[in-house]
Design a protein around this nucleic acid. Structure first.
Length: 661
RNA sequence: GCUAGAGUAGCUCAAUGGUAGAGCAGCGGUUUUGUAAACCGCAGGUUGUGGGUCCGAUUCCCACCUCUAGCUCCA
């Protein structure tokens, strides 16, 4: 008889020869299963298990259970679309985080109004309570059927499968190629909402036709769905583009150019505070600050590999004036110019896409001894990358940005220690900023790709170094082939913000290749030249992206040390203006960023404004406070903090600033 | 870059093939205020840019620019 493996360790037997659904009803009616797992393989509830099967229920509320719901929802949506738009070709329709999508190929361009119609049709399908029925066809038969129906994408999918038997699922009048499992019937489909429609390439390849992808959210209960929709709204309200405008933190302007950020005074304060803090930390760790220009000769970037390997994601080179005149004399066309640039016959300058080639030149500017190593060169270096127009997004995806960059040059035997220290630095910085959910990813080379420089040995060595470090530190990490930098593998830090969204921020990279390409050396204890290893690292990544994320993480309510305006002095009436000005001066002298709000509004209005402006503290001064040399302190979130002497208030704020809380 | 959508006052948003409107913000005045919005007034626009259709375009058409969602990319 089949055996049921329950979470509590019990193993009840199931009646033989009946479906799982029936068996569960009889033996374990409390188990809310949506499918079962047998030897790691998922099966529907309608499946009739063999006598020796060991069956593990897949509960509704588990991630796997939710995936099944969402996957079935994508089928129901496809059924609705096919009903409304006959002749629609189906591509793929998987479950994703919080929902599902399905890719369609149809003439009609789907609009938001269509989403409402599709949703209504889905509701109808749910009410039809059609069971999801699995059926299996021999491969040839399956291909014949789909080909006859003109489902060319499905044909392509089957052609990619090895299986001789192909499974389909039917629900009502709709049938789709599918591995399963599915809900028992469409009536179990929980709560859903279609959210958006957007283009998506077939199989994610830009050479393929673009399909229309409809996204939906799906949950077991209306309540869970509503909660998710509320969360989406909260995320929208915290959008850094919106808050950045509202709080005058940064500005993007057509005349300046897309993806080029103007930091407004208040945003600049946040950035300056971050930079000062980082500089102080780096000083303690033996880094040296350097400055390098924004452009450098093309040859420099040919040597580094940036120009040949990433030409299309850079601003085009600035061509030497003399060279340009000569090319004009020769009537050189654009295509010809492009060829000559590639051949290295035309010289010019490149807006730097990375700082490393310039830092390397600083290393090379002197003869280095093993006694000098490691040399750690740090710079808030501004780099330029020509991101595709569709990729730009506020501050978090831009074309000009400043990295909190540094390059460490060390002897091979020092390497792992340096990487370790870098990892520790990144972790401590995130901790300070309240970003506690950090995941590490070891990003490796994709051996099949030709976008990397250097020898296989160098790569193997570097990848081993990184694995040693993460294992030694006992850190949780995932490996990601194909995510490496073009010169070396890296450890990336993926952070979840206050809204549980993921961002790739800091990075620590090991590089044997650029030292080789640039012929870097140091003289060892044996009086012979040796090749150093480089570490590239940027804890925050880019200040633009990082501040953009911080805006959303804090919802513009920055901790005191980062707040552009730390305290606002609010006089009750005109009689206190003079005292309020004195308090303002006193707080300014205590090193605080303070403003006096002496307008003739009522105190309630001033408090409201300061609260909306997310100013951490308000110092309210009326007749009573003026008499005692005190202020009535109010916090933007915690409200009234009581009356205290101005010095006490300043000390309290200074303490809070020092603690960076 | 690709697909779809959008662009109206500093911000958020209305409206229309026939002189473009509100709230907030701004400015001026009245009010002198005790912990999340006092009152009155004024000003603010080549409706993204350039072309076209039309007696007339902000509205319709075309091109371009920028933005949004997603795809692709992300050294």
């Amino acid at each position: 008889m089949p055996v049921l493996l329950l979470a509590d360790g019990s193993r009840p037997s199931l009646p033989a020869g009946v479906s799982i659904a029936e068996a569960l009803r009889a033996v374990a009616p409390k188990v809310e299963a949506v499918a079962v797992k047998v030897n790691g393989q998922m099966r529907d509830l309608a499946w009739v298990p063999p006598a020796d099967a060991e069956i593990e229920p897949v509960r509704k509320e588990t991630p796997e259970g939710l995936d099944i719901l969402r996957h079935s929802l994508s089928h129901i949506m496809a059924a609705a679309v096919v009903r409304l738009f006959p002749g629609t070709k189906l591509a793929i329709g998987p479950a994703i985080e919080n929902g599902f999508y399905y890719d369609f190929d149809l003439e009609h361009k789907l609009t938001p109004e269509d989403l409402d119609r599709i949703e209504a049709e889905m509701t109808r399908i749910v009410k039809e309570r059609a069971p999801f029925q699995r059926m299996e066809l021999p491969r040839a038969e399956a291909l014949r059927r789909l080909d006859a129906e003109g489902q060319s994408y499905k044909v392509e999918l089957i052609e990619g499968l090895q299986d001789e038997t192909i499974s389909f699922y039917r629900s009502g009048d709709f049938m789709d190629l599918c591995r399963g499992p599915h809900l028992a019937t469409t009536a179990d489909a929980g709560a859903f909402k279609l959210l958006s429609v957007a283009g998506a390439y077939w199989r994610g390849d830009e050479k393929n036709p673009m399909l229309q992808r409809v996204y939906g959210a799906g949950f077991w209960t209306r309540q869970a769905l509503d909660e998710h929709l509320r969360w989406l709204e909260e995320a929208r309200a915290r959008d850094h583009r919106h808050l950045g405008k509202q709080h005058a933190l940064f500005h993007l302007n057509d005349l300046v150019g897309p993806g080029l950020v103007l930091w407004m005074p208040k945003g600049a304060i946040i950035r300056t505070e971050l930079e000062s803090w980082i500089r102080a930390e780096l000083r303690k760790l033996g880094y040296q600050g350097v400055y390098t220009p924004h452009i450098g000769r093309l040859g420099l970037f040919r040597t580094s590999g940036h120009y040949p390997y990433y030409r299309e994601s850079q601003y085009p080179p600035l061509i030497d004036r003399e060279c340009l005149a000569k090319l004009a004399d020769e009537n050189c066309g654009c295509a010809e110019l492009s060829n000559r640039l590639e051949a290295g016959e035309v010289e010019g300058y490149l807006l730097k896409p990375m700082n490393c080639p310039l830092h390397i030149q600083i290393y090379k500017a002197a003869q280095r001894s093993y006694r000098d190593l490691p040399i750690r060169l740090a710079e808030f270096g501004t780099v330029y990358r020509y991101e595709g127009s569709g990729e730009l997004n506020g501050m978090v995806r831009v074309r000009g940005f400043t990295q909190d960059d540094a390059h460490l040059f060390c002897a091979p035997e020092q390497l792992e220690g340096e990487v370790e220290a870098c990892v520790a630095l990144v972790q401590s910085m995130f901790r300070t900023l309240g970003l506690t959910q950090v995941q590490m990813r070891v990003s490796l080379r994709d051996p099949a790709s030709d976008k990397y420089v250097g020898s296989a040995e160098n790569w193997a060595r570097a990848e081993q170094n990184l694995r040693h470090v993460v294992r030694k530190l006992g850190l949780d990490y995932v490996e990601a082939p194909g995510e490496a930098a073009f010169y070396g593998p890296k450890i990336d830090f993926i952070v979840r913000d206050a809204l549980n969204r993921q961002w790739q921020l800091g990075t620590v990279q090991v590089d044997y290749n650029l030292p080789e390409r640039f012929g870097l050396e140091y003289i060892g204890a044996d009086n012979a030249p040796h090749r150093p290893v480089m570490v590239h690292r940027a804890p925050l990544g880019s200040l633009e992206r990082f501040v953009g994320i911080l805006i959303e993480h804090y919802g513009a309510a920055f901790p005191l040390w980062l707040s552009p305006e730390q305290v606002r002095v609010l006089p009750i009436g005109e009689a206190q203006t003079e005292y309020a000005a004195r308090v303002t001066e006193q707080l300014k002298d205590a090193g605080l960023r303070v403003h006096l709000q002496a307008s003739n509004e009522k105190i309630g209005a001033k408090i409201r404004q300061a609260t909306l402006d997310k100013v951490p503290y308000m110092a309210i001064v009326g007749a009573k406070e003026a008499e005692k040399g005190a202020v009535s302190v109010r916090h933007r979130k915690d409200g009234d903090q009581g009356v205290m002497p101005v010095e006490d208030f300043a000390a309290r704020m200074r303490r809070e600033i020092a603690e960076k809380t």
